[in-house]
Simulated assay, not measured.
Amino acid sequence: MRHWLVIDLEATTDEGGWPLRDMEIIEIGATLATSEGHEVAHFQRYVRPLRRPCLTSFCKDLTHIGQQQIDSARTLAQLWPAFESWLLAQGSRLAGWASWGDYDRRQLEQEWQAQGLQSRLQQFPHLNLKQSFASSRQLTRPVGLNMALMLAGMHFQGRQHRALEDARNAARLLPLALPH
């Protein structure tokens, strides 16, 4: 059986948002799920940002991630091998990876390039679940994760704007978003 890796990232930001080039990952959440949306394995880590190591009040309030969690975390370059080892341990079950929208893919690609990191994910197709869900439901425009869950008759489980919970909730929509 082939599985999908659904990834969600939390990143540094402030009220009004920052351009992608100014954002840095502060949490990685990934769930390996069946095409029916059932979790098989997961990965979650906090990440210490390098350029702006102090989280803004807005960022802390939004993500419920504290400064102490970030201060004691490893940098992306330090923890990326652990992610790759975890991914490798999942074997050849991976059909591709996905995220709700394109932000997570673009942020990872930016960080990989800036820090000279390689990833097995670069060998797999990326699926924008937000676009795919909108297409499969014939929506006039893509909707947020919360609205998509409501349209599917589901409720958000866990705390919003936490990487693993967001990834898990997006994975629940896989059966409704995967191309047939």
Results as ranks from 00 to 15, higher is better:
8 D>A: 01
11 A>M: 14
11 A>E: 01
12 T>N: 04
14 D>I: 12
15 E>C: 02
18 W>V: 06
21 R>A: 03
21 R>D: 09
22 D>N: 10
23 M>G: 02
25 I>K: 05
25 I>T: 11
26 I>G: 04
26 I>A: 08
28 I>V: 14
29 G>D: 12
32 L>S: 03
32 L>H: 07
36 E>T: 13
36 E>P: 05
38 H>Y: 09
39 E>D: 12
40 V>P: 13
40 V>Y: 04
41 A>N: 14
41 A>F: 03
43 F>K: 07
43 F>Y: 15
43 F>L: 00
45 R>Y: 07
47 V>S: 11
50 L>P: 02
50 L>T: 12
52 R>G: 01
53 P>V: 05
53 P>Q: 06
58 F>R: 05
63 T>Y: 11
65 I>W: 13
66 G>E: 09
66 G>I: 03
68 Q>Y: 14
69 Q>R: 07
70 I>K: 00
70 I>E: 06
71 D>K: 08
72 S>C: 02
73 A>V: 00
73 A>E: 08
73 A>Q: 10
77 A>F: 07
84 E>S: 07
85 S>K: 14
87 L>Y: 13
89 A>K: 09
91 G>R: 08
91 G>F: 03
92 S>E: 11
92 S>W: 05
93 R>S: 12
95 A>W: 14
95 A>Y: 11
95 A>I: 00
97 W>V: 06
98 A>N: 02
98 A>F: 14
99 S>N: 03
99 S>C: 04
102 D>T: 10
102 D>W: 10
104 D>E: 06
104 D>Y: 08
107 Q>I: 11
110 Q>K: 14
112 W>A: 13
114 A>T: 10
115 Q>H: 13
115 Q>C: 14
115 Q>M: 10
116 G>M: 03
116 G>Y: 04
117 L>F: 01
118 Q>L: 09
119 S>W: 01
119 S>F: 00
119 S>P: 11
120 R>N: 09
121 L>F: 07
126 H>W: 13
126 H>P: 06
129 L>D: 02
130 K>I: 02
130 K>S: 07
133 F>W: 10
134 A>C: 07
134 A>D: 08
135 S>L: 11
135 S>C: 03
136 S>E: 08
136 S>K: 14
137 R>I: 03
142 P>T: 01
143 V>G: 00
144 G>Q: 11
144 G>L: 03
145 L>C: 14
145 L>I: 07
146 N>W: 08
146 N>G: 15
151 L>P: 02
